[in-house]
Simulated assay, not measured.
Amino acid sequence: MAVAAAALSTASGGALQYNFYGSSCPKAEEAVRNATVKIISGNPTMAAALVRLFFHDCFVRGCDASILLDQSNSNPQPEKLAIPLRGYDAVNTIKAAVEAVCPGVVSCADILAFAARDSTMVSGGFTFPMLGGRRDGLASDLNDIFGSLPAPSMQAQQLISSFKAKGLSADDLVALSGAHSFGITHCAFVTPRLYPAVDPTLNATYAAALENVCPQGGAGGTVLNNNNVTGPNVLSNQYYKNLGTREVLFTSDQTLTSSDATFNMVKDNAANPVAWMARFAGAMVRMGGIQVLTGTQGEIRKVCGATNSGS
């Protein structure tokens, strides 16, 4: 209840509303939740994948489900061609479950937002209300990604500026970075901190373990995430404790301890898990309000991978 209240009191979504489908599709959020829980029960790694899809979608063109569009005549180079992400099939499964309840009513953009919220519930053990009312965009262009997404090599001030450009604060940056406590990454994003010399901000013992997983000149497989205590599929504030011991994967992680604007929040999130949950919830809601389409803008897609025109 404390987490939900915090999210409600700090959210700013314009035309978005809580319980947006209360009249038009009362069982919409229940359908999303049931399908999401079933998917994650079968494959626990999908929780992190769905949260990451939501983040990528919102940061590129706003939360308009552009990340979900497949290649077509009108979208010859969609965003999904630029970065290998997981979870598209899961979103399609969730969409089908919602369409079975009330066809043509719930947007893919809202389904992605609700699924990210419900992934938090399954893997993090807390939940919060999520605004609804987003409409689906008609365009997706991989070129829009460049300059939009924060990179794992960024320093603190660059990250703060990246989030500020989307209307989010340094506190939101730190809170949402907690999502790096679950999921997996590729060695290609880790090896720049290992070779030709180990990044001095990286814990030496942890670096040696990473070198075993990601040898220099290796094929570039996957490496476990930042959560070396509670497991790769658990969303928690353990990430902030690992920042303190310098056992995190990316430059963009460790740099959060290099700035007073972010380090104080890192320490507080490490010490106060419930406070972090509230901050994460509020930041997720605020992120879900980035450049949304509402009212008669865009459309409600019949399927998430294509516009209704099919062009």
Rank of each mutant, 00 (worst) to 15 (best):
G22T: 06
S259P: 05
T93N: 13
Q254M: 12
V91D: 00
N237R: 04
M1K: 09
F250P: 03
E99V: 12
G87W: 04
R193A: 07
V213I: 15
L159H: 02
L224P: 02
G62K: 01
A7H: 05
Y88P: 01
V101Q: 15
A271Q: 12
D199T: 05
L173G: 03
C304A: 05
V101C: 08
S12Y: 11
V213D: 04
K38S: 15
L16T: 06
G298M: 07
G220A: 10
G220M: 09
T251L: 15
N75Q: 09
S66T: 05
K166T: 02
Q254T: 08
G220C: 07
A11Y: 11
Q254D: 13
L142W: 09
S161W: 05
S309T: 15
K267A: 09
T191F: 07
N203Y: 06
R33H: 13
L53H: 00
F54I: 03
D70N: 14
T205R: 12
S258H: 05
D136N: 13
G183E: 00
S153G: 13
T257S: 11
F59A: 09
D110I: 10
A48T: 03
F55C: 08
G178I: 11
Q157E: 14
A204W: 03
P78T: 06
P78W: 13
T93S: 10
E29D: 08
V3I: 15
Y206R: 07
F114V: 12
G288W: 02
R135L: 04
I39A: 10
N75R: 05
W276H: 00
A151I: 14
G178A: 04
D171C: 02
V274E: 11
